[in-house]
Design a protein around this nucleic acid. Structure first.
Length: 635
RNA sequence: GCCGACGUAGCUCAAUGGCAGAGCAGCUGACUUGUAAUCAGCAGGUUACCAGUUCAAGUCUGGUCGUCGGCUCCA
């Protein structure tokens, strides 16, 4: 038996005879071999049950490694599938991957199951785990695989096998009587799964396509210990307290009504935040050389036919009739901006022309996708269209990326970047698309921004760079976007006169920073958990007189703060201080100013901060200076 | 749109097919209070809506509307 060298990370050099199993190496060299899930062999994920035939670099994976956790949960999804097959032998298997924080498995049941059935399935899963079934990998030929799953009636698996690339080995994993098509790797046996829970039941189209049959998806999660599982479930509960729908009601920011599904109502408190966001936005845009326009909400159908929206976006649009003619409620602002550009002649010296618009658009989204303020049917885009010459594209795109980064930084948002490419319903030539896509890619690479490619998710008129933010449950939502457009300008016959005295067609960037004000507000609410920084807080301070004897002084303090342009009110109800403070805390007001005999006598205010607590007395002027600085610096 | 769940007072939640209730919020009054809930009283409902079964429906059945969780993070 030839000897092989094994470099065990972090730094061990070992020698074994070829054919040694990873499990053996693990038992010998890992202190807590029980917690090892799988291994990376020369960077590739492998089962612990597999063996080494040549010199290798090995790193063992634990649950604390992201890859390890995914494998652990993927194995749990197989246990779920096995349990389902035991209880419902006629159920057909879909796919069952690990996802962030858990896993799912899709099934087609002969009769739909309901949420109560999950208990039964969980019980069976526990049995399978107690059986400690060894999990074995086997590579088989395409023909064998097809035959195996055809026999079992697993039509979805057969479909997957047929689509696997020729050069890829086909592997199956067996545990007890259960077998699944799977690339792996997996835990060595089912007994390794500590704590798990099935968390949800949902419908899911096979392969996410609504033309395919709908399967039932069971969601779950698993952890090595019950404590970790419990902690995870508690974290989810905590996160729900930050839900913008709950906080929106509690803080009186907005409301949603049956009378207008998907059409949010903003209350005074919500409007204050929106107004602050907008005035910040206006200041930054003026500084960055933007103009601002406003175009109509309802425009003639002919315009939408002309722009391509009639052909490509009609299902999402609302229509109406005026004087016997068809009109549409705008789903996008671009045609309006095109008309503004076209309303006068342009020289190349005028470009780039950056035209911004806070445009209220309406889109008919599927009823089932509506979600608080995060997915609505009417929203305000902080839109802009940049008209420019072709050689200005890169610097303008870079400028917008800078601007988005600057904005998101103010709020402390982490974001993810995606590049979306040509969709099925696209207008314009393939060459144009390729050119546009490569320009966007080049700018991203030049900036060293990590990004993901979203095949086929671009707008119908051009590719785009999207900026995604996360909500309280980690779901990601597109906010900022930069879309490159070579089509719309020529459709609208836009032009500028070049240095050569000839007419040329400009290129357009469509872009938003917040995206939709409504969605951005929702994410802000969750991001801050409702405790907005002073510059955004609907009420920045509350004046709390202790008894009626301080009401006069309270009015004085109130007037001074109002005079300094702060949002403030007096709580002069006949309640105890503790009661008023508790209420102000629940309303997440940044500052509470308690006024008693001492403060009134010394003309001071006793400052309490919602997070820092009692800060003691200080002069009114000092407090005003403190709050003013906090607001100006958007702390 | 599709799959599943849910819909009772402003909010959070009770009520075996048998008189719709509690806490908080609201209103009135008393209390004059020193850093997260003072006490008492009052008021608040076509149980989402529309049909049906039943002596009797918040509860059972059907439909409509709305809300929530999902609908590739590819074996």
């Amino acid at each position: 038996m030839p000897q092989i060298k094994v470099r065990l990370k972090p730094r061990k050099e070992l020698s074994y005879s070829a054919g040694v199993s990873l499990l053996d190496i693990c038992r010998e060299h890992e202190d807590s071999c029980d917690s090892v899930i799988a291994a990376l062999v020369n960077g590739k994920e492998r089962d612990l049950t597999s063996s080494l035939e040549s010199d290798s670099e090995v790193a063992f994976l634990n649950f604390t490694d992201e890859q390890g956790a995914r494998i652990y949960r993927h194995s749990t999804s197989h246990v779920l599938a096995q349990a389902v097959k035991r209880l419902y032998p006629d159920a057909k298997l879909g796919i069952g991957p690990a996802i962030e924080n858990g896993f799912y498995y899709d099934f087609e049941f002969p009769e739909p199951i309901s949420a109560e059935d999950l208990d039964k399935i969980e019980a069976e899963m526990k049995r399978i785990i107690a059986e400690k079934l060894p999990i074995r990998r086997r590579e088989i030929s395409r023909e064998e695989a097809l035959e195996l799953f055809r026999q079992k009636g697993e039509t979805y698996k057969c479909e997957l096998i047929a689509e696997l690339p020729d050069n890829e080995p086909i592997s199956i994993y067996e545990q007890g009587e259960f077998v699944d098509l799977c690339a792996g790797p997996h835990l060595p046996d089912t007994g390794k799964i500590g704590a798990f829970k099935l968390t949800g039941l949902a419908g899911a189209y096979w392969r996410g396509d609504e033309r395919n049959p709908m399967l039932q998806r069971i969601y779950g999660t698993s952890f090595p210990t019950a404590e970790q599982l419990e902690r995870h479930l508690e974290l989810l509960e905590e996160a729900k307290k930050r839900d913008h729908r709950k906080l929106g009601r509690e803080l009186d920011l907005f409301s949603l009504h049956e009378e207008g599904p998907g059409f949010p109502f903003f209350h005074h408190n919500g409007m204050i935040i929106i107004e602050e966001l907008i005035s910040f936005w206006r200041r930054e845009h003026r500084r960055a050389g933007y103009e601002e326009i406003r175009t109509p909400i309802i425009l003639n159908r002919k315009l939408w036919e002309h722009s391509g929206h009639w052909d490509h976006f009609r299902e999402n649009m609302y229509f109406t009739k005026i004087d016997g003619e068809d009109y549409a409620v705008k789903p996008m602002n671009c045609p309006g901006a095109m008309l503004v550009y076209r309303s006068r002649m342009h020289s190349y010296r005028d470009l780039p022309r950056r035209i911004a618009e806070l445009g209220l658009v309406h889109r008919h989204e599927l009823s089932g996708t509506l979600h608080g303020l995060l997915r609505v049917r009417s929203f305000t885009q902080d839109d802009a269209h940049i008209f420019m010459t072709p050689d200005q594209i890169e610097s303008e795109v870079a400028g917008v990326i800078d601007m988005i980064d600057r904005f998101y930084r103010v709020f402390g948002f982490n974001y993810r970047v995606e590049l979306s490419t040509r969709p099925a319903k696209a207008i314009g030539s393939i060459e144009m698309w390729n050119r546009a896509e490569s320009i966007l890619e080049r700018v991203l690479q030049a900036r060293g921004l990590p990004y993901r490619i979203n095949e086929g998710e671009g707008a119908f008129y051009g590719p785009k760079i999207d900026f995604h933010l996360e909500d309280c449950l980690g779901r990601s939502w597109q906010c900022g976007t930069i879309q490159l457009d070579f089509q719309m300008p020529s459709l609208f016959d836009l032009s500028y006169i070049g240095p050569d005295g000839q007419k040329h067609c400009p290129v357009v960037i469509h872009r938003v920073i917040y995206g939709a004000i409504e969605r951005f507000l929702a994410l802000l609410i969750e991001h801050y958990g409702g405790a907005f920084p002073a510059w955004l807080a609907p009420q920045q301070a509350v004046v709390i007189p202790i008894t009626e004897r301080q009401h006069l002084y309270a009015a004085e303090v109130y007037e001074a703060l109002r005079g300094a342009n702060f949002r403030v009110y007096v709580d002069d109800r006949s309640e105890k201080v503790g009661y008023k403070i508790r209420e102000a805390q629940l309303k997440k007001i940044p500052y509470m100013l308690v006024l008693g005999e001492r403060e009134a006598a010394a003309k001071q205010v006793a400052v309490r901060h919602r997070e820092e607590g009692d800060l003691g007395p200080c002069s009114l002027d000092n407090f005003i200076a403190r709050l003013r600085e906090e607001i100006e610096e958007k702390k």
